[in-house]
Nucleic acid binder design. Structure first.
Lengths: 110, 110
DNA sequence: TTTATATATTGCAATATTACGATAAATAAT
DNA sequence: ATTATTTATCGTAATATTGCAATATATAAA
């Protein structure tokens, strides 16, 4: 036990859950926030923006990357990270659909 | 260690992360999916829709409720759960903002 | 080649999550 | 009052996550 039973859910459910899970930590939201504020992608100073040690930040970046939310390129000795628009669009669509379905639904709920 | 350092992040970052985290499990995505398909709110059969035992489902429902994504009313011996539109709107707005900012941003990234 | 800089990985301790059997609580039906 | 039904809670085992010090790796600069 302790393991999520992914086999029993649809690919779509699993993939949305994976994206949501990756965003389920304030440090990772802060990273996304930061990536949106910088024009250039050389993001070596994310560590300085966060109240966490470098290995911890590196780990959070890795999780965002594994989930497909950000991509990274080696840029000399620094690394350029940036948001993967497609994955954001994916999650955005998910919530847009829910919002639309809720508008259609019977309002006499709870 | 092992605990998230919430104190060091903004309220907005923490609250988005909380909502995202609650959606970070396929069973909870499946619950949201199901709540969208039923017209009536009497949702006692969520357990039958999921490949999980009743206590596990109850726990997932509790987490969605704690995060504010669903609300529940006692309806006789059954319980009526439904989606909280405001919280969905919250998360939806978050991704809409990101999408908009990405459109504005320099495309020459990574 | 040596040194500095930037990032990743390893290893580990503390805590959280996932899942479920057993059981409780609370109402409905008989 | 007793029994069935529905949902919640407790306890617990297995696993995952969070965070960091120490260390490795890899390129840039001297």
């Amino acid at each position: 036990m302790g393991t999520t039973k992914t086999e029993h859910f649809t690919d779509r459910q699993n993939s949305i859950a994976t994206l949501a899970k990756a965003l389920g930590h304030p440090a990772r939201i802060a990273i996304i926030d930061y990536l949106l504020t910088v024009d250039s992608c050389i993001c070596g100073d994310i560590v300085n923006q966060l109240p966490l040690a470098q290995p911890t930040v590196s780990q959070h970046l890795k999780e965002l990357k594994n989930a497909g939310l950000i991509k990274g390129n080696i840029e000399g000795t620094a690394i350029c990270y940036c948001i993967d628009e497609a994955s954001i669009a994916n999650v955005h669509d998910f919530f847009t659909n829910i919002s639309n379905q809720l508008k259609i639904k019977n309002k006499s709920c709870c």
